Amino acid sequence: MLSEVLMVSAPGKVILHGEHAVVHGKVALAVALNLRTFLRLQPHSNGKVGLSLPNIGVKRDWDVARFQLLDTSFLEQDDITAPIPEQVEKLKEVADFPEDCAINERLAVLAFLYLYLSICRKQRTLPSLDIMVWSELPTGAGLGSSAAYSVCLAAALLTACEEIPNPLRDGDGISRWTEKDLELINKWAFRGERVIHGNPSGVDNAVSTWGGALRYQKGQISSLKRPPALKILLTNTKVPRSTKALVASVRNRLIKFPEIVAPLLTSIDAIALECERVLGEMAVDPALEQYLVLEELIDMNQHHLNALGVGHASLDRLCQVTMAHGLHSKLTGAGGGGCGITLLKPDVEQLAVEATKQALTGCGFDCWETSIGAPGVSVHLATSLDTPIRQVLDGL
């Protein structure tokens, strides 16, 4: 068991192209978002295991001795990639939730307990430690916040229990694990995601683990050549939406108007494939002309998504505001509100960016200037327990 403080971070994600079409077997491109979740693991000897999640107001601890007495054989699952309902029910008993505990708090705690007990049960004694996780990602906005949480937990616990080595060497400020170790991190993170979401696609945790850009189609995930990190504005309209309801509405529209909607889905697929081609070129030799193509693809995809019925007045407003400043935007994720992304070409002046951010904020939206194509899960030098987030970010 490692004795030093461990600091880990993992990125969120956005869908660049392929929303809704991916449900019908088309290609989706998912990219790592450089708004990150951070985890600090502090080993100690006080006989407690603690979890602190300041973003959602969770602060819990449990006696390690109590966990040590548990029969954790219920966690054995061979090659099964998901915790079964019986395991989750037993974890609820272990968690000992107060009656007024919110659902997001319950799910976050259950994912932690599942990963802690499953990964650490191979140790002679369960480790005593404190874990704090905080994030720049808003929850419930379709930006992969739960996946980044699960990836951070998996990476930290596997490293602390020496299931994988700590890749950080003397003199390093930041480092990443080997491909083999990343595969193990991703496997466990997916299990954590299953606790939270039941039946996720696996895209979010894969993007958070490997970073860069990924291609997803019919359950198959592959990495793209990493293009230069693309600068974007990420805007949260703060309009709530139901992904399930939006997916169902597109399916109904396809059934009602098959000869209209099927070509839209095919066209969205073609947009994703063209974007993949352009990103491949940019990985070798980026040029301004390629950004112009990306802008055209963004505009076309946004129109298609509106035609599918997943637009929203807030997203229309977002596109109008950014277009007034010469910038191109589209929704990302399920639509119906939620978030949008705006591409920032290298030649865009910062004054225009600031004016756009101010206008979007004036609409009541939250807005971040960030990038996509960010690095995946990473381990950082933790010089002290009060290392500011910004100091960590400066090392990315």
Results as ranks from 00 to 15, higher is better:
L115S: 06
K180N: 12
A324R: 15
G311K: 06
A313E: 14
K231M: 04
K13F: 04
L51G: 01
E105K: 13
V353Y: 06
A245E: 15
I185S: 07
V94S: 05
V379K: 09
E76S: 11
K244L: 10
S146C: 04
T332L: 00
G311W: 07
P263M: 00
L126K: 09
L396N: 13
D79W: 07
G340I: 04
R106K: 15
I119T: 03
V58P: 01
D130R: 13
I56Y: 02
C152R: 00
Y149S: 02
V392H: 05
C275A: 15
C319H: 01
A248T: 02
A32C: 02
E19V: 03
L233E: 10
V293K: 05
P200E: 10
E295C: 14
E105C: 13
R251K: 15
K180A: 15
W177T: 10
S146E: 09
G171Q: 12
S378H: 07
P346I: 10
L344S: 04
G212Q: 04
V353A: 14
K357E: 13
A262K: 12
P83Q: 05
L51W: 03
L75D: 08
E86N: 11
H380L: 14
A206D: 01
V239K: 13
W368D: 09
A108C: 09
S371Q: 08
G198W: 07
L264N: 04
F97I: 11
S150E: 03
L292R: 09
H325T: 09
L327Y: 13
W188D: 04
